[in-house]
Structures are given as structure tokens and as C-alpha cells.
Write a protein that binds this DNA or RNA. Structure first.
Lengths: 212, 212
DNA sequence: CCTACCGATCGGTAGG
DNA sequence: CCTACCGATCGGTAGG
């Protein structure tokens, strides 16, 4: 333990962030009061300020912590030696699982990033762009023609739409859960990719095909 | 024009709602002040209260107005006599266009509905459920096997994920726009559906297939 | 002197 | 329709 600092200082910090993330996710960052956070943590408000400089520091920690975790998970998965479809499948599965384990932080990241200052927001967005780039790379590996049609980016974003939207409609206790949905997303994307590439290619470059 | 009321009362109301929707979409409903709305409308704050009882009334009007419009658009499209794939395609295309024409109201509907009182929120959600049901019906018409596999609902929600998420990443002035994306979404879904149905059917009822 | 807090209240600003 | 305000509550911090 660090000198002069309680052994469970970091543990308490993490516990506070988890509670704050839940409240921010439910009510939004601006309309969540520090009194609510304090009450949810069974701490006094001054005690809260012992662990965080201000409310804004909590927002930065939640958003950046989550996106860092996602970035690390994606990098680790991309580093594996797997065939393209297996890698994309694993990427999606792990991503959905990470969302499931951090639903509150996920909603804060997608809805409250706009309340970050320009420099902090840019740092978070930089991580997000790296994650998106890896997904696009994994998609192109499955279907190399994607790269020529400039469809990799939009298809990646449609894929993110499916999984980012998932936890807005999944009922916690329902028969359908994220474990069951991940393979459905994989099959829908891998199954639909050929049709999209075929249609788009035939539409955009009919003359070049005629010349060849 | 109604007696005793200015001829452009309703027009002014709509103009105010449009400005308020933009501010709510940018900053969120709770952190948008009535002073900001008044300034954006070039009106005094008391003038604002001539058109709306309170800030909450604006939120209800924006959210309910938008979902009513979507519901009407879906009903009108479902009533057309078209072959299944053409109808689903038109449904998606019109829906994406409606979003494009009301991006602010769309974001308010998806992010600020949680700030509605229970009865108002329930009314909005009832319209959303009707819209979802129509999309599910249009999907099942394209691929009847969907109905047996209980995949219609989750696939419908994955489809909504793609189009609801679209305007969070589309750049207004970019090369890629919603007109180009709608057919890509259609092709991805129609192209991927068979693969999803095939995989899911073979996974869930192998024994029943063996018996038959 | 340090940390880890508590009860009480600060200056400003929100919706109305 | 404006200036001038209210009751309530915000994020943040004082002394002990």
C-alpha cells in the first residue's frame, strides 16, 4: 500500500465510480447531483471530494476508463492468430460481453461524452477511432473486396449500431440475452456482407467492368 | 384562424419546438435552460410561457410529435400493396428519410424520453411498440421461417440499432449520406437473414428434425 | 504534521 | 412583454 494512504483508497474510488456511473446512466450526467452520488455510496459529500476533485473528474474517469478497457480488449483480440471469420466473431462476442459487464459506463460513454471538455473528449474519441479501425480491419479480412468499395467504414458503423443499441432494448431478466445475440449479429453481418458488396460493386463501376 | 388568437400562433409554436429540440438534442433536456430556448427563438422568457405551460410541455410535444409522425409513416407504408422485399425496402428508406428530416427530435426521442412522467412515457412507448411490430411484420413477410424461430423481434431490434445509430456518426457534409446508406442496410438485412435463420434453426431443434 | 471524514453553509444559478 | 424577483437546489468548501 502507498505510504500515508489507506489500503482501500483505490477500491473505494472504484466503488464510487461504479455507483456514479449507474446514476449518470439513469439520469444523465448534468442532472445527477453529488448529493445523490454521496447517498448511493453511503458517504458524506465532503468524503466524496476526498476521492475526486469534482463531479467532472468522475465523468472523465468513467468514460475514459471504459473506452480504455474496450481498446485494450480489441487490441488483445486483434493480436491473436485466428482465421478472419473466427477473429471477427470473437471480437463481437467479447465486445458484447464487455458491454454487458459495464452497461452503466457504456451508456455514459455513448450519451455523456458530449459534456466532456474539448481536450478530454478528443482523447476519448481517439480511443474510439482506434477501436472502430480494428473492427473495420477485421471486416475487411473476412471480405477483402470491402476495401475497394469503400464500404468498410459504413458497414463497421452499422455493426456498431446493432451492438451499441442492444442494451437499450434487452430486458435484464428476459429469455433473450446478449450471449444469444452475439452469434446472431455475427451471422447477420457475415451472411449479408456478400450481398452488399455484390450490389454496390455492380452499381458503382459498371463501365470499368465492361472495359475489362 | 382561431378567434382571439394570433394567426401565426401555431407557426410560432412549431418554430419554438424546432429550436428547443435542437438545444435538447445538443445539451440534453435537463441541462437546457428556458433562457437558452428564449434566446434561440429571439423571444423573452415570459413570451415563451405564452406558448407553452412549462419546459416539460416542450419535451412532451417534441417526443410525442415525432413518434406520431413515425407511426403514421409506417402505417401508410404498411397499407401499400407491394411485394414483401419492396415493402421492407420502402419502409427502411422512408424511415431513414424521416430521421434525416427530424434529427433533433429523433435524438430527443431516443435520449430524453426517460425524463417523461410515467403516463406520458407510456404513451410514447406504445407508439414505438406499434412501429416495431410493423417492422417485424415486414421482416417476417420477407422470410416466413422467421416467425417460427422467434427471431423476428431480435432481428427487428438489430435493424433499428443500425438506423437509430446512423445519425450519431454520419457527418452532415460528408461524402456518405443517409440516402446511400438506406439501400446498404436493406441489402445487409435481406442478405443476412437466410444465414441467421439457417444457423438458428439447426441449433435449436436438431432433435425435432431427427424425429421427422 | 498527516489522513479521513462530518455538520453546516458558501456563492451562483436554475425553472418559473 | 420586460424587469425583477421568489423558493429550491446546485456544485463545491469552510472550520473543527
Amino acid at each position: 500500500m502507498a505510504r500515508g494512504r489507506a489500503a482501500d483508497y483505490d477500491l473505494t474510488r472504484e466503488a464510487i465510480l461504479a455507483r456514479a456511473a449507474e446514476l449518470f446512466a439513469q439520469q444523465g450526467y448534468p442532472s445527477t447531483s453529488m448529493n445523490q452520488v454521496a447517498q448511493a455510496c453511503a458517504l458524506s459529500k465532503p468524503a466524496l471530494y476526498h476521492y475526486f476533485r469534482d463531479k467532472y473528474a468522475m465523468l472523465v474517469n468513467i468514460a475514459e476508463g471504459h473506452v480504455l478497457q474496450l481498446h485494450a480488449l480489441v487490441d488483445a483480440t486483434m493480436a491473436l492468430e485466428l482465421e478472419p471469420k473466427a477473429k471477427l466473431s470473437l471480437l463481437i462476442t467479447r465486445f458484447v460481453e464487455a458491454y454487458a459487464d459495464a452497461q452503466a459506463a457504456h451508456r455514459v460513454l455513448t450519451e455523456d461524452t458530449r459534456f466532456l471538455q474539448a481536450d478530454d473528449r478528443e482523447r476519448v474519441l481517439a480511443h474510439e477511432r482506434r477501436v472502430v479501425a480494428s473492427f473495420a480491419q477485421a471486416l475487411v479480412a473476412c471480405h477483402p473486396e470491402l476495401d475497394e468499395t469503400q464500404l468498410a467504414k459504413p458497414l463497421t458503423m452499422l455493426l456498431f449500431g446493432m451492438i451499441n443499441w442492444m442494451f437499450t432494448w434487452l430486458k435484464p431478466g428476459g429469455a433473450l440475452n446478449h450471449e444469444a445475440l452475439a452469434p446472431i449479429v455475427v451471422d447477420l453481418v457475415l451472411g449479408g456482407l456478400p450481398a452488399v458488396v455484390r450490389k454496390h460493386t455492380s452499381m458503382t463501376s459498371p463501365s470499368s467492368l465492361q472495359k475489362a
